[in-house]
C-alpha cells in the first residue's frame, strides 16, 4: 500500500495533526512502509475466525451507582492552559 501526499494530508487532518509541508513526503514513505508490513496479514485466510478483542474471555464488571467523587475542580484544573470562572476556555465554538 503506497500512500500519496494527499492521503497523508487527509489522515493528518482526521487525526488533527499539523504536519509541515516539507515533512509530508517522509511521512508518506514511512507510513507506506508500515502498511506494507501490515499487508502481510492478507496472506492468511481468516474466514470464519472470530475476532479477538481482549486476551481474556471475560465480561464487563458493573459498578454500584453510588457517588464517591467529590468536587476537585481546583486540583483537576491546575494543569489547564486557560480557564475562567471554572470553565475551560477554547477559541470560539461556532455551531
Amino acid at each position: 500500500m503506497s500512500l500519496e501526499k494527499q492521503d497523508v494530508e487527509k489522515i493528518a487532518h482526521l487525526a488533527r495533526l499539523a504536519i509541515d509541508e516539507s515533512a509530508i513526503p517522509g511521512y508518506a514513505e514511512d507510513l507506506s512502509g508500515i502498511l506494507d508490513l501490515v499487508d502481510q496479514m492478507s496472506a492468511v485466510d481468516t474466514d470464519g475466525i472470530e475476532p479477538l478483542a481482549h486476551p481474556h474471555d471475560a465480561n464487563q464488571r458493573l459498578r454500584e451507582d453510588v457517588v464517591t467523587e467529590e468536587n476537585q475542580r481546583e486540583l483537576l484544573q491546575s494543569n489547564a492552559p486557560q480557564t475562567d470562572a471554572g470553565l475551560f476556555l477554547v477559541p470560539k465554538v461556532i455551531e
Binding site: 475551560f88 476556555l89 470560539k92 455551531e95
Partner: peptide, 15 residues
C-alpha cells in the same frame, strides 16, 4: 456543554 457567551473572545467548556 460549550457555552457561547463571550469569555474574553473565547468559548467556555463545562464538562
Amino acid at each position: 456543554k460549550s457555552l457561547h457567551e463571550d469569555y474574553h473572545g473565547m468559548s467556555g467548556i463545562d464538562l
